[in-house]
């Protein structure tokens, strides 16, 4: 059986918010080492990968691997009903058809239990190869969110260019063009590692959706390499991450 307790529901709320705009149904695979989830969006343009190691949890027990088919909209409704500082315990039997969520207030005076019906999902699982990225950029996640929002006013396509001088985001559309450049800073809030300069185009709508994960982490890591998907990674405390992969746009 599975029993996993998070000290604060706030973390689960942030995780669900980071997932639900991009995927609606997904399987959460639980094992003794933690929880994993991987799904493509409906258009198969992007892939989201979530990993929560046992260290994310106050208490974690998973005797046998269990796969939980989740409707993220339903899960979102349940977590919304809880207060952020409640603790939450997720539990499921070995061959479960439902997930139990038990919320407990700080002073233990209020408990709320929900049963969420699980789904039988038959999803493709993709193998993500280890990639030696040509460019790796780290910046404040709020800065990345701001850039993605500003770019999307100009065009549905965002061009990302990265050189040793910095990272540049460009958008060209009917109302004009936008260019935002960031250089590495001495105080280390922006770091830019470049093996080879690169320029690639991406759908701004997806980049914007990835920034729903901003509350999870102060920092975001952006990795680019020729002819492979962009990686946008937010770490989750010290024991997990949410990674978004986005297929590039290519010239006709």
């Amino acid at each position: 059986m599975l029993e996993a307790r998070l000290g604060e529901t706030q973390l689960l709320k942030k995780i669900v918010d980071a997932l639900k705009e991009i995927i609606s149904l997904s399987t959460l695979d639980c094992s003794e080492t933690g929880m994993q989830l991987q799904s493509m969006d409906n258009s198969h343009v992007s892939l989201v990968s979530l990993s929560l190691q046992t260290g994310c949890f106050e208490k974690y027990r998973c005797d046998r691997n269990v796969s939980l088919g989740l409707d993220l909209k339903s899960l979102s409704k349940v977590v919304k009903s809880a207060s952020g500082d409640d603790s939450v315990t997720l539990s499921a039997a070995d061959k479960a058809d439902k997930l139990l969520l038990s919320f407990e207030s700080d002073n233990k005076s209020r408990t709320a239990d929900y049963e969420l019906k699980l789904l039988n999902l038959d999803q493709d699982h993709l193998g993500i190869p280890d990639t030696n990225y040509a460019c790796t950029v780290q910046m404040p996640s709020s800065e990345f969110a701001r850039i993605c929002r500003d770019m999307s006013m100009f065009s549905e396509t965002v061009v990302i260019s990265c050189t040793k001088q910095g990272i540049k985001f460009s958008a060209n559309g009917d109302l004009g063009s936008a260019n935002i450049k960031l250089a590495e800073t001495s105080k280390g809030d922006i770091t830019i590692d470049v093996e080879e300069p690169i320029t690639q185009s991406f759908a701004g709508r997806y980049l914007n959706t990835f920034t729903r994960a901003t509350p999870l982490s102060d920092r975001v890591k952006i990795c680019l390499a020729p002819e492979v998907p962009l990686l946008v990674e937010y770490s989750i405390e010290d024991y997990g991450y949410i990674r978004y992969y986005l297929a590039p746009k290519v010239d006709d």
Partner: peptide, 14 residues
Amino acid sequence: NSTQTSIASYFKKV
């Protein structure tokens, strides 16, 4: 003009 590629063309099913 640019065309959107599919993520499944980069990562293979396992």
